[in-house]
């Protein structure tokens, strides 16, 4: 179950004063089971790109293939695609509307036309996956904390049993605790269900900890697409477009400049500390 994007272009408001080339010739392969980070500053096109993955936006030219089927071809079931590629928007808690948490999570599977039993069993499973305690299931979503609300909203997407889960800045506005909880939960989910996860974020530190592949977007184009440690080697280019490598990358480069023989591609605190200790033991 893979997504392939070929020569995708998207132009906003064509022919008006606001015309904007939001995506330029995007070519991407998103195979099964990967944990992908997508990075870029505001306006780089990343939010636009992910809305093409489930057909909410239609490219001006180019094609998106889901399991080798062109989703723009006539007769393609868009509604089914939306259940296969789950898209969690920014501040997803703003979409909650039902009187209680459980009913809200049922909304997605119900729209798929599933039976009551199937709908409910999926909702239970989804709420379990996001780690929400059962005592909250019958509570109004508006009485929960920010982090809990967000988990309910993510469960609302998971209940549709997607094969690809796309999260647009799932940690925006959360405190460090809420952020870690959500990201850990997503990582666990990836492990447990083996689904593809695409995590859109501003934060290199967050992404570096979890993903195996990073796609950097800039001005509507894919700028880098590689393993994190490889991408962060381009920290100077990243800086030029308003992004940055994790702080430890700079630390390792700083030490190297002073003649320390440490690898420069550490991306997490643990790796950096380990490398420094190893170097000090050897010398």
């Amino acid at each position: 179950m893979a997504i392939r994007i070929e020569h995708l272009n998207y132009i906003y408001g064509a022919g008006t004063a606001f015309e904007k080339h939001a995506l330029r010739d995007i070519n991407l392969d998103l195979p099964d089971g990967q944990f992908i980070g997508m990075i870029g500053h505001t306006g780089s096109g990343k939010s636009t790109l992910i809305q093409h993955l489930n057909g909410l936006l239609k490219g001006t030219s180019g094609a998106v293939y889901y399991n080798d089927k062109n989703i723009y071809e006539e007769g393609f079931e868009m509604k089914r695609l939306r259940s296969r590629v789950g898209l969690v928007f920014q501040y997803p808690e703003h979409q909650l509307f039902e009187a209680d948490v459980f009913t809200d999570v049922c909304f997605g599977p119900k729209n798929l036309g599933l039976s009551k039993e199937e709908t409910e069993s999926r909702a239970y499973e989804a709420l379990r996956l996001v780690g929400l305690k059962e005592k909250y299931y019958k509570v109004s979503p508006f009485e929960l904390s920010g982090g809990q609300k967000r988990r309910v909203a993510i469960a609302g997407i998971l209940a549709m049993n997607p094969e690809v889960l796309v999260l647009d800045e799932p940690t925006a506005g959360l405190d460090p605790k809420g952020r870690d909880d959500i990201l850990d939960q997503v990582a666990k989910l990836h492990e447990e269900k083996k689904i593809t996860v695409i995590l859109v974020s501003h934060s290199m530190e967050d992404v570096a900890r979890y993903v195996e592949r990073i796609i950097v977007m800039n001005k509507g184009q894919v700028m880098f697409d590689d393993a994190p440690r490889k991408v962060f080697q381009h920290y100077k280019e990243l800086e030029a477009i308003g992004l940055a490598a994790p702080q430890v990358t700079y630390l390792m480069h700083g030490l190297q400049e002073r003649g320390w023989k440490v690898p420069a591609d550490a991306t997490t605190v643990e790796e950096a500390a380990g490398a420094i200790i190893e170097y000090l033991q050897k010398s």
């Binding site: 809305q51 489930n54 909410l56 509604k79 939306r82 259940s83 789950g86 898209l87 969690v88 928007f89 997803p92 703003h94 979409q95 909304f107 997605g108 729209n111 798929l112 609302g156 997407i157 549709m160």
Partner: peptide, 11 residues
């Protein structure tokens, strides 16, 4: 935005 979010849930 909300419209799109609900469409992503099959609305």
């Amino acid at each position: 935005k909300i419209m799109k979010a609900q469409m992503a849930r099959g609305a």
